[in-house]
Design a protein around this nucleic acid. Structure first.
Lengths: 212, 212
DNA sequence: GTCTATACAAAGATAGAC
DNA sequence: GTCTATCTTTGTATAGAC
């Protein structure tokens, strides 16, 4: 049994998993703030409570660690989109999607930031995802929105631009948190501020696409 | 006369300025994509057509170069906000602002990206600006918007959230250009796509805050 | 699995000639 | 102002003992 056997529930495996998880979390924190090049392995090691050598035992190189982190955050990032529900009325589905994305910005700001960092660099490691799975998912959800427009349930709007606007305006609160905080003095951790963000973003977008 | 005398219109000064400008431009390109740590001075040197030693003659350190670049892009980033016009009707002023910001995303995508990078890192070098000049500017423009709301010219909206939404949804086309391109197959360089972005963003936001 | 010691490479910065 | 050569630091990664 090697370290690769993640699902084996032996004591050892569990200890290993816990350690790897701690490393991943520490790595996410530093990668998301300083990028892959701005991050020192020593820093990650310290933050996760293992030695640098030990860290390299679990993840054989910095890049391997980075890829592992990316893989993990992709799921977080995609979850709200996958949960986008066709069964609801258009306005409800979109309102719920906005709330979910803002919750991700509040609860997993580092995931949002790291994702943003990757995009800024031209998505060298996510290119495959972007043009593959993500593209399919978007096409699928876009078709739903287009269907709503066609059947007169929604004002004429380009689905892509609508999706971009939702992504942008929700992720902004994570990615530009320092700016948001500098301007308003608040963060999404502040419950009232979170709620006002949800309300305002929902209202502006909904009113912007409501049929009349 | 030293190299610092930027405004002196002598032949030498002009040559120096041109060189420094070329370096700044090359630095912006690499910094905006790879960040300060991911950028190699040699790369900047090559891209701007000077030797690494020579580059360090004009900018004594990597950090000095980085600061110089940041300083320059701040003006670009702030220009549209400064141009926000109170004299127009609310909806026109906001439509114009959106168009201006999208033009910046189209014409200076690197400036937008570098600014975004700085924000992701917690704005270590722009903190002063954020809480100083920018804060003042925002407060001023927010007051204008709040005035419009109070006098019944605009639907009730929190000025800060409105401004965030405009920033987010316009900068998104620069910062997430790879994603936008992966999903739509288009870039802002495509005139028709640019126009549809302007139209859609303007329409959604305007309809979202129009009085009715 | 974990540690100490160390090899190795890369890149920022400087010295000094021209 | 520009170049060649070089110093120095730092950080990734490996070797090998325990």
């Amino acid at each position: 049994m090697t370290q690769g056997a993640v699902q084996t529930p032996g004591k050892r495996s569990r200890a290993v998993s816990a350690k790897k998880q701690a490393i991943l979390q520490a790595a996410l924190e530093t990668f998301s703030q300083f990028g892959i090049h701005g991050t020192r392995l020593e820093q990650v090691a310290e933050l996760s409570g293992v030695s640098k050598t030990n860290l390299l035992y679990y993840y054989p190189s910095k890049e391997a660690l980075y890829v592992a982190v990316l893989q993990q955050i992709l799921d977080i990032w995609l979850a709200p989109l996958k949960a986008f529900r066709e069964e609801l009325t258009p306005l409800l589905a979109i309102k719920e999607y906005i709330r979910l994305k803002l919750e991700v910005s509040r609860d997993y700001p580092q995931a949002s930031k790291l994702f943003c960092l990757e995009m800024l660099q031209g998505a060298p490691l996510l290119q495959a995802e972007l043009t593959g799975d993500l593209k399919l998912l978007i096409d699928e959800k876009s078709a739903i929105i287009a269907g709503w427009v066609a059947s007169g349930k929604l004002a004429p709007v380009d689905p892509h631009h609508l999706i971009f606007m939702i992504w942008a305006s929700t992720q902004h609160y994570a990615d530009f948190a320092s700016q948001v905080e500098a301007v308003t003095g608040k963060t999404l951790q502040d419950e009232a501020f979170f709620q006002s963000a949800v309300d305002n973003v929902q209202r502006m977008i909904i009113e912007g696409i409501r049929l009349r």
